[in-house]
C-alpha cells in the first residue's frame, strides 16, 4: 500500500492503494468516477483516456502511485459547472456518439488534440483528425460524425 495524493477535477484527493493500482481503477473504484471507461486490456481502445497535467493519457496503463501531486481531469470535470465544454456540445450537435461508451475517451482525446494543434499553430484537417484518433476505437459511429464533431469544436475552441 502506498499513499498517493493528487488533484482530480480540481479537488485534492488522497488514498492508500496497492502499488499496482491503475489510474483507471483508482478513478472508477476508489473515487467512483465511473465516466472513465475500460474497453480493453492491451492499451488499444482509448475508452480510458483522461488528462494528466493537461495531456491526454490512457489511464489503463498509468499507475496511480506514479501520479503523486498530479493534476488529473476526467470527463466528469471537463464542463465548467453547468456549461459544457465546446467539445461536449459539438459531440451532441453532430451526433458524434451512439452508445456513449467510447465517448469520454474520445472527448478527452479530442480536447487534447485540438489544444495541441492550436498551441503549435497547425491546422487540424479531417485527415489529421483521423490519424490522431489512432488510439481510440468506436464501434458504433463509423467515425464520420466523430470527425465532424472535432472539426466543429476545433473552430469554436
Amino acid at each position: 500500500m502506498t499513499k498517493v495524493s493528487m488533484n482530480v477535477n480540481g479537488k485534492k484527493v488522497s488514498r492508500d492503494v496497492p502499488d499496482e493500482t491503475l489510474l483507471s481503477d483508482f478513478l472508477r473504484e476508489k473515487l467512483r468516477l465511473t465516466g472513465t471507461h475500460v474497453g480493453c486490456d492491451t492499451s488499444q481502445c482509448g475508452a480510458c483516456v483522461v488528462h494528466v497535467n493537461g495531456k491526454a493519457v490512457k489511464s489503463c496503463t498509468t499507475l496511480a502511485v506514479s501520479l503523486e501531486g498530479a493534476e488529473v481531469t476526467t470527463i466528469e470535470g471537463l464542463a465548467n459547472g453547468k456549461e459544457l465544454h465546446p467539445m461536449q456540445v459539438a459531440f451532441n450537435d453532430n451526433h458524434g456518439l451512439q452508445c456513449g461508451f467510447c465517448t469520454p475517451g474520445m472527448i478527452m482525446t479530442s480536447v487534447d488534440m485540438v489544444a495541441r494543434y492550436k498551441a503549435e499553430g497547425r491546422k487540424l484537417t479531417s485527415d489529421l483528425i483521423r490519424q490522431e484518433l489512432e488510439g481510440n476505437i468506436c464501434r458504433c459511429t463509423g467515425y464520420h460524425n466523430i470527425v465532424k464533431s472535432i472539426e466543429d469544436a476545433s473552430a469554436k475552441m
Binding site: T34, T74, I75, L84, Q88, N92, L97
Partner: peptide, 14 residues
C-alpha cells in the same frame, strides 16, 4: 447525450 458526454452514463460495471 448530456449524460454520456459528461461521464454520467450508468453502465452495468458502474
Amino acid at each position: 447525450d448530456r449524460r454520456f458526454t459528461t461521464g454520467r452514463g450508468r453502465y452495468t460495471d458502474d
